[in-house]
Amino acid sequence: MSSTTVRTGRPFADAHVLDDLGDGRFRAGLDDVWAIGPKAFGGLLMVLMAKAGMARLATEGAPATDPLAVSVDFLRAPDLQPVELETTPLKVGRTISSIAVRLLQDGKPMLHSTITAGVLPEGEPRWETGPVLAPEPGTDAVDPAAAEGGARGLAAACEMRYPPDALAFLRGETAPPEMAGWVRPRGEEPDVLFALLAGDILPPTVFNLGGAQGWAPTVQLTALLRAKPVPGWLRVESRSHTVSGTQFDEDVTVVDAAGRTVCQARQLALAPLRP
């Protein structure tokens, strides 16, 4: 894969291309398009693992290959180099299947995942908690790609917007550990895999508490996929319930343009150390 730049107008589609090595093994490239500094973005790594798991289940005759739940232990942070994915089916059922996926780099385990597959529900839900954000960002929304020097980091890989008051830490202020924003892929409409990625797209909530800013590595993240998103912006809201010592939690809800929840994610992460 390309090592430094967005190759086409569809950087998300470019990023989750898998080479089938046979025997349930796949290879993928990692580059600095979807990266946090020198390390691969965790949301993309989850997408690669989910895609590999779904591909393997399809060869095993699983009748339904939508990801329903993706649970990942982040053992080590991969460098921006190729990785391999090994898949092991745990159960192939008529309605629910399960598969384990390991992501390795230079033969060393980096992430371990268990993926539950089935059929995502369609139609209107019986109950839905309404989103806080409007379906689309307003004219006063903050566009990180409009900053001096142009788009950098994840803002170059996908379109992102934030409410004017969302990023207190950028103004040198403190606020509750909450974040919100809109996101969508460049050059294509969001799908289930992008909804999964969106569950980890916002800046760490602890940034708003003040102190050090930097890499906040995820320890464990479990995402539930709830529906296939309709075209348009995804609305993402995250908040921490407890920040204690070096650890914090985040609960994230991703809602599509129609107001339907498409992903719910909860993670345990390590807060950046104070200088």
Rank of each mutant, 00 (worst) to 15 (best):
V254T: 06
A28C: 08
E84W: 03
I99T: 11
D19K: 11
R10H: 07
P67A: 14
G107C: 05
P164I: 02
A269G: 06
M110I: 09
A151S: 09
G149V: 08
P231I: 05
R126E: 04
L111R: 13
H16V: 05
R274K: 04
P272G: 07
P38C: 15
G214M: 09
M49V: 08
M160V: 14
A35F: 10
G149E: 04
W233D: 00
D143R: 08
T114Q: 13
R126M: 12
R7T: 14
L48Q: 10
D20I: 10
R186T: 12
E237A: 14
L90P: 03
T261I: 08
W233V: 00
L170D: 01
E124P: 01
D23I: 10
A156R: 10
R186Y: 00
L45E: 14
V70Q: 01
A258R: 08
L111V: 08
R56D: 10
E250R: 07
A212F: 03
A52T: 02
V236D: 02
R260Q: 07
I96R: 11
T261H: 06
T8G: 00
A100Q: 11
A40K: 08
V236A: 04
R260N: 11
F74T: 03
P82E: 01
A157R: 05
P272M: 06
P163I: 10
P38K: 11
A151W: 09
T222R: 06
S113R: 04
P190I: 07
A100L: 09
R102A: 11
G245Q: 12
L75M: 04
F248G: 03
G123N: 03
L273R: 13
V243E: 07
T88S: 06
R10G: 01
H241A: 13
P63F: 04
G150P: 04
D191K: 06
Q267T: 05
A216G: 10
A117W: 02
A157K: 07
L234A: 05
D200V: 09
V33S: 12
V47F: 11
Q247A: 11
I96A: 06
M54Y: 03
W34L: 14
P121S: 08
P176V: 03
T59G: 00
R10V: 12
R260I: 14
